[in-house]
């Protein structure tokens, strides 16, 4: 994990030069894969994600079928080479099962599942390179892939993280709320929150937190993500439109 840095933010500038309200550089490509019904490639700084959607299709195993709606199954996985090459062993583990579960639930509430009874919609999120905030970037990519697959949805899903990092301000120690955690901030920061949000309906479908935040800090964070969330949403729209405008 490396050594703990002395400071994560100095006079309002983070380790990688960002301000507290800045996202990392973003790139979204819709229709990235040929075989999938819908797909998306997303870059957020050096976090790189591919999401693929298959379905609606017949449910296997059959006993998992829901008779009044579609089953949205999400599988989150980190590639064996996604971190430093030693830390992540290939295959499912406790952490990716948890993320798969919460992602499935988040996506189920965006999709009009009643439109396709007795079917499964399979979403695969593959983290190619991990630099923190992978679950939220995975969800952002998954929602583009779902839309690309022509699946009826209430809204897009914009997911991002914020957290609290330590550092100095004018020579004095300070704790600052910041948007879009990167690896050192996620590892050494004081708290981090993963959020998934429907930008038009203004509803949250995922909220997870590690560490501790005061009520005010949490409110600040929610306020801070509004602008970057709109930015992300705009990029999603552009990516989807671009696919059809050539």
């Amino acid at each position: 994990m490396g050594d703990k840095p002395e400071t994560l933010i100095t006079d309002g500038v983070r380790l990688d030069g960002r301000k507290p309200k800045d996202m990392r550089a973003l790139k979204i490509v819709a229709g990235f894969l040929e075989n999938a019904d819908g797909s998306c490639y997303l870059e957020c700084g050096s976090t790189k994600v591919v999401a693929a959607v298959y379905g609606p299709r017949q449910v296997h195993p059959r006993h998992a079928t829901l008779f009044d709606r579609a089953l949205v199954r999400c599988k989150y996985d980190m590639a064996a080479f996604s971190t430093d090459g030693n830390r992540k062993r290939p295959g499912p583990d406790r952490r990716s099962r948890e993320i798969s579960k919460v992602s499935s639930e988040a996506l189920s509430s965006v999709v009009f599942t009643e439109a396709y009874p007795r079917t499964a919609i399979d979403v695969f999120i593959e983290i190619i390179q991990a630099d923190a905030s992978t679950r939220v970037n995975g969800l952002t990519a998954a929602s583009v892939a779902l839309a690309d697959a022509g699946i009826p949805m209430r809204d897009m899903l914009v997911a991002l993280s914020f957290g609290k990092i330590y550092g100095t301000q004018d020579g004095k120690p300070a704790e600052v709320v910041a948007v879009d955690m990167d690896k050192p901030e996620d590892n050494w920061g004081l708290a981090d929150v993963a959020l998934a949000y429907m930008p038009n309906l203004e509803r949250f479908v995922l909220c997870q937190m590690d560490g501790r935040l005061t009520h005010d800090e949490f409110r600040d964070g929610l306020e801070m993500i509004k602008k970057p969330a709109q930015e992300l949403y705009k990029l999603q729209k552009e990516a989807l439109r671009k696919k059809y405008k050539g």
Partner: peptide, 8 residues
């Protein structure tokens, strides 16, 4: 117009 889910 090309629209995405959720657009007004």
């Amino acid at each position: 117009q090309v629209v995405v889910p959720g657009e007004t």
